Structure formats: C-alpha cells, structure tokens
Amino acid sequence: MLELEHIQKAFDGVPVLKDLSLQVEDGEIVSILGPSGCGKTTLLNIILGIVDADQGEIRYSGEDLTRTPMEKRGFNIVFQDYALFPNLNVQQNITYGLRNKPGISSREEVDELIDLLGLREHLGKRIDQLSGGQKQRVALARTLVMKPRILLLDEPLSALDGVIKESIKDRIKTIAREYHLTTIIVTHDPEEALTLSDRVLIIDQGSISQYARPDEIVHQPRNDFVRKFILRQLEIKRGNIYALFGDRPQLAGEAV
C-alpha cells in the first residue's frame, strides 16, 4: 500500500498541494485527474521522488520514503514524450536498464513482456520508424523490465487517438492485472480516468475534490466542481461513458 499523509507543496510561496492525504492499494490502478495547474503533476513527481514535499509523509508497505531519494524508491515512470533513445533500436531501448542491473529480469521475462506488448516484429527498428502507439509500448516495456514497485504514467494516452488509444488502455490494464502492479496515471481527460482506473483522484486547486470509484464519481459527485468538470467534459463522449455507467446525472441547477 502507498500512503500519503498531509502532503503540502508550494513554489515561490504559492501553494500547489494543500494538506493532501490518500491511500493506494496494492495492485490498484489510480488516475490523478484535474484541470491544468491543479497540482496533479507535482503530486506525481513527489511520489516518484523528483520533488520533495514541504510537509507530510510518504510510506510504501509501511516504509517511510519521505526523504528517500528517487533512485532508491523502486518506482519508475513513463514520461509523456516517452524519452526513448533515438540512437538505439527497439530491442536495445527495452533492455537498456538491464546493462547495469542484469539480474532484475531474465531473458524469458523480457521475452514475455515483448510478446505481451506486441513488439516482437519491431525489435530491430529504429525509434523514428515507430508510430506513437508503438513508442508508448516500447517505453512501457523498458520500464517494466526493471520490475518497478509502482508504475507511474504521465499523460500516457495524450498523443494517441482512436483504436490505438483503446489498445494501449487495454494493455495497461492487462499489465496491471497480470503483474499485480500498482499503477498511478496523471491525465487531464475524464474519459481516460473513468474507463482505465479502479479509483480516480480529482484535484481542484491543490486539494482533493473526490477520491472514489468511477461509478461513484459519475453517479455521486461530491460537489459542484466534480459535477461540472466530469459531466460537462464528457458530453461529447457520452456514448462511451454512459454505456458503462448508465444515464447522465443532472448538474446542479438543471431542470429534471
């Protein structure tokens, strides 16, 4: 279990995260959702260890990680731009981290990941020969061979659309289930969060507006911010969402 208690962070005296506490269960997929500037990327960076919290505690399986440096936390991230090495082919990118830690994943485990992510036919290709979805799968494989305790994803679907986007969503869910891998995703897209996650954390101006299962958020939004942010942004995608969660709830002030 990942536990955050009373996390606070400010930049140049401006509060970004305000007394934020939550728990993420082992093997759970959690999306951090909110508008630009709400603090979701700062929270991801604090969990990863890139940024230190001003106040509060971070624990994983009871171990205090608040002041533990990033390289010793055992958490790995896939960045929005993939951060692949253009001078290496797909196979070399996937196994790059194993150069320094060759015992983490066996050859069989690497092959299993390559097949799970559908990358076998692309192993000899250069990165500039890949589509956006293929690059995302390579970035996932490169991270997963290092066997992270927690997988962090920064806007993993933002550059994708259509069938490719749905395929990557399915692969992320499959990986989380098969490897029982706690996965935390930052996104600005309510549809992504609601269809990908076990629970969704909605942040507004550095505070938690709601932290709940997707069906609870759709049918029992805690406040007007959640109602407006979720429901109004989903109007253009209502077919996908309401097929899963049922009829659209009413916004405050709307006629029934």
Rank of each mutant, 00 (worst) to 15 (best):
R227T: 00
Q220V: 04
H180I: 04
Y179A: 08
I217W: 10
F225W: 02
L194H: 03
G206M: 10
E178Y: 01
E192C: 08
D170N: 12
N223D: 15
K173C: 09
I184E: 14
I184V: 13
S207R: 14
F225I: 09
V186H: 03
R171W: 01
K169G: 12
I203L: 15
V226A: 00
A212S: 13
R227M: 11
P214Y: 10
P221G: 11
R227D: 06
I184L: 13
R227N: 03
I203V: 10
E192R: 00
V200F: 08
H188T: 07
D215H: 11
E191I: 08
H219Q: 15
D198F: 09
T182Q: 01
L181I: 07
I184C: 06
D189N: 15
Q233K: 15
L194V: 02
K165I: 04
T183A: 13
P190E: 07
L181R: 14
F225P: 12
N223I: 10
S167P: 02
V218K: 04
G206V: 07
Q210H: 02
I185G: 05
Y211M: 05
P214A: 02
I175M: 03
A176S: 09
L181A: 01
Q220T: 13
I202W: 03
L194K: 01
V226E: 02
T187A: 00
Q220F: 11
D224R: 01
P221C: 15
I175Q: 00
S207T: 10
A193G: 01
T174R: 15
Q205K: 14
T182K: 04
I230F: 00
R213G: 11
Y211G: 11
K228R: 12
V186I: 12
A212R: 05
I184D: 12
Q220R: 14
S167W: 00
Q233G: 15
T187I: 04
Y179T: 05
I230P: 00
S197I: 00
D198N: 14
S207C: 09
I230L: 08
I172S: 02
L196S: 07
R171N: 13
H188R: 02
K173A: 14
R171P: 11
Q205P: 09
L196R: 10
F229M: 03
G206I: 10
R222A: 12
I217N: 09
Q233A: 08
K173R: 13
K173T: 13
R171G: 04
R177N: 14
I168C: 02
I202G: 00
I175R: 00
I202R: 00
H180E: 06
R213W: 05
E191D: 01
I230K: 01
R232W: 02
H180N: 13
F225K: 09
I172P: 13
